[in-house]
Write a protein that binds this DNA or RNA. Structure first.
Lengths: 321, 321
DNA sequence: TTGAAAGCGGTACCAG
DNA sequence: CTGGTACCGCTTTCAA
């Protein structure tokens, strides 16, 4: 670039990076800075990281489904915290890419760390990423993956909490909503399994209820509610719970007398319905903590992989259960 | 890499890219592929784009505020459509970066195209990006920026629609909710301005109402509702509308008799309250169309910048207004 | 204090 | 058909 500033490329590099091992005279610095400003010079990240052999890019797949305020908040916090540690966070739009293939696509960018929510990345995927220079791979999933750090997001606990609550309040015929929308299985199945486990060995019964996030679907489900003979339902999350509760009420069912309803995520909107919606409050890991984990892993890539359980789940009992 | 496969780098390149201008013998291809598989070889995107002088990366800033299902859907669709056109979509976590500074950070990655929702990127930012190789810069904002293609998302129309509707139904003392949460000004201010414009020269009055997305804030606002003397309110969006409507009802106000309420975004959840929430349905551009615009712009970087108005707004009249 | 030169991992031309 | 080689933009010794 600014050899047109009268100096060599090396000098430019020194000046712009404030290289401490080298002293550059003030006049020269000034000329370099001036020229850079003038030409609108921007360093070429690819060239830099090619030469350096590493980057400070932390990559995570972009969510392909609408995420709630909880998760959005978490991502923002994480980006902010990693930004403070001088990492660049990049969400890769991996629409349609699967497992190994996705891992390969990510590896092409040679990120220093990869954060993967959900399953879908096997041990081979992790190995591939590590071979291509990722000094840290962190999964946010129900179970750990060989070779990667793991933040265990145990959605089973959410189901267990909800089921324990309903059972403790005397409910025995318990329905569990399973959303029909694709891409939610990663959450809905563990939550369902959690309910199942909580009810194991008790006198309660569990009924799976398929429900799409549309009024018609809820109305259809409500129409056959009496024949279902359920006295309570864990509705996957607050949004599905709100939808279903409204349909049940329109069908003439009394909440919670005839049927108790509980959701999850503790959305503000759930408090607006009457009766106020009971819910399972979920606590995600703090973005700061995860950022620190990443940073530690990057600095100490040989260290044993850490596994932390990070999903807090507590029942918030309001009026619908 | 697989010079350890017994061939030269060049040959590897030919084989893995299926270079048609060159014929490689089957045995050689096989050995290369075998070695690549064995070593878990992944090409180095930085090296490739350094050499090529360009990449196929489309960059957009990651949203820093929780976005609704509407926008999430739009992003997904866009990623999918661009993926089909063989672009790689990357969301850059620009937490805290502003205008020029953000533009510089993005430019370091030398994306072939940049998509920027919202204002904050000035003409200099656009120029900077173009100078560093971006063949297309597209803004999604209320107004066009010199040098960039523009998808005009005219949120004023949302406010106008809502105001026209309320006015047509005989309301004259109209409140407009302005969220207190930071980062929403890009939407809330134009919506407010739209209401103002719609009411200009009529006998209606406009009152700004500051509201945070918390129950307490809504309760406080509702408590002074009677002294405000409003007969209707445009509540920014459906979520704020739901929150406020509930608080008004708890305060003893009848909806819509005493106060008409209208939101925006046409969320499913708005239909669950009673009375069912009136709303302004918003139509975002199709991801496919935007992807095509980007592709066209990339292939024809010299062409004049296009400006399209892409935000459809129509009132959905339900029971709260 | 500054400059010359090597090299990061690919691609593309040209010679063998 | 295949290998040598120059080069993309930047950092980093090493010499001047």
């Amino acid at each position: 670039m600014a050899r047109l500033a009268g100096v060599s490329r090396a000098t430019v590099s020194y000046v712009l990076n404030n290289t401490s091992a080298v002293r550059i005279s003030e006049p020269t610095r000034r000329r370099v800075h001036a020229a850079a400003k003038e030409l609108g010079y921007v360093p070429h990240a690819a060239a830099r990281s090619l030469r350096a052999g590493h980057s400070r890019m932390v990559l995570m797949p972009a969510p392909s489904i609408p995420v709630g305020p909880l998760y959005s908040q978490f991502i923002s916090e994480l980006q902010w915290a990693l930004g403070r540690l001088d990492y660049t966070v990049v969400q890769y739009g991996s629409v349609g890419l699967q497992g190994e293939e996705a891992a390969r696509a990510w590896a092409e960018l040679r990120p220093v760390a990869v954060l993967v929510p959900g399953t879908g990345l096997g041990p081979q995927g992790v190995a591939l990423l590590r071979r291509s220079g990722a000094r840290a791979v962190v999964t946010l999933a129900p179970e750990a993956v060989e070779g990667a750090h793991a933040l265990l997001m145990d959605h089973e606990r959410v189901g267990r909490c909800a089921a324990d609550h309903l059972y403790a309040r005397g409910r025995r015929r318990i329905g569990v909503v399973v959303p029909e929308e694709a891409g939610l299985e990663a959450f809905s199945l563990p939550r369902l399994a959690g309910v199942r486990r909580a009810l194991l060995g008790t006198d309660a019964t569990l009924t799976e209820l398929s429900l799409a996030f549309e009024e018609q679907s809820a109305i259809r489900l409500a129409a056959r509610w009496r024949e279902l003979g359920l006295d309570s339902v864990f509705a996957y999350n607050d949004e599905y719970a709100m939808l279903l509760m409204r349909a049940l009420q329109d069908e003439g069912l009394r909440i919670p007398e005839d049927t108790a309803v509980i959701g999850a995520d503790d959305l503000l909107l759930g408090r607006l319905l009457r009766p106020r919606l009971s819910t399972v409050h979920i606590e995600l890991p703090s973005g700061r903590d995860l950022a620190e984990l990443v940073d530690r892993a990057v600095r100490e890539p040989g260290a044993a992989t850490e596994t932390h359980t990070v999903l807090g789940a507590t029942v918030v009992h309001r009026d619908s259960s």
